[in-house]
Design a protein around this nucleic acid. Structure first.
Length: 234
DNA sequence: AACAGAGTCAACCGCCCCCGG
DNA sequence: GCCGGGGGCGGTTGACTCTGT
């Protein structure tokens, strides 16, 4: 006998969220906060399960989300944290304000893993791959290239302190990172659902106040997102 | 221009943990 | 201490986009 599903699934919508659903969820949370995720879809009129709403909010709608590719420094820090914590993405994500565990997990799986393999490092152990049999996914050609390039050396992983320092320095001086930030911000705003300011808390929302949300809602970008929705929201 | 394969990432699934009764 | 419900988490999937041919 299996565990009961988290919610009554019959009749619930699945798959990609529409802008209308996003704005319904956003409006509801802005006005009511989050008491219980199960109640959110019922009270907001969404045909989604509570978990789905939670995920959508956390991974996409939260206004303090930072989007776009991770910076080099962030990437280094992910590697460092992964070497210590393993696949504990939520713990890793806590070190990156505005990043979600899902985002970091995806980034790891699609990019960092690949980079590490190219460097001849095992993404699981963070140690150099010593023999072919230990890493069947690494082709002999890759190995050959790595050896020629000297990638068999252990790559030194910066400490968190180093990273913090680097990030600090980066903030003030690196235009490239800054512009990357900006472009991620623009991407965010294109989606109409992000903002770089941190929202702090009302009730259970962590750091979230209605004032900050109202600030956010005052931006042109926020409302641009909802133009064309017609009379859905009186 | 059309197609195939690779890459990306939002979303789902199911298990685990925590907390209140 | 036990049980059930809700939230959190990590793994996986599949739709969409990009790139190369």
């Amino acid at each position: 006998m299996g565990r009961q599903p988290c919610c009554e699934k019959v009749g619930l919508k699945r798959g990609p969220w529409t802008i209308e659903e996003d704005s319904k969820l956003m409006n509801f949370i802005l006005n009511n906060g989050i008491q219980c995720w199960r109640l959110v879809p019922k009270l907001s009129g969404l045909m989604r399960c509570g978990k789905s709403c939670r995920l959508r909010w956390i991974n996409y709608l939260r206004p303090d989300l930072k989007r776009g590719a991770l910076t080099e420094a962030e990437e280094d820090m992910v590697i460092e944290l992964h070497s210590r914590l393993g696949n504990r993405w939520s713990k890793i994500a806590r070190h990156f304000p505005g990043r979600t565990d899902n985002e970091i997990k995806n980034y790891w799986n699609t990019r960092i893993k690949k980079k590490m393999k190219l460097k001849g490092l095992d993404p699981v152990t963070h140690k150099p791959v010593l023999s072919k049999s230990q890493d069947l996914e690494t082709t002999s050609e890759e190995m050959h290239n790595h050896q020629n390039l000297g990638f068999q050396e252990t790559v030194s992983i910066p400490s968190l302190e180093d990273h913090d320092q680097r990030q600090h320095n980066t903030k003030g001086s690196s235009m490239s990172n800054q512009s990357r930030e900006e472009s991620s911000c623009i991407k965010n705003l294109d989606m109409g659902l992000g903002s770089s300011f941190v929202l702090q808390n009302k009730e259970s929302l962590g750091n979230f106040t209605m004032d900050s949300y109202h600030n956010f809602m005052d931006t042109q970008y926020f409302w641009d997102c909802f133009t064309g929705l017609g009379d859905s929201f009186p």
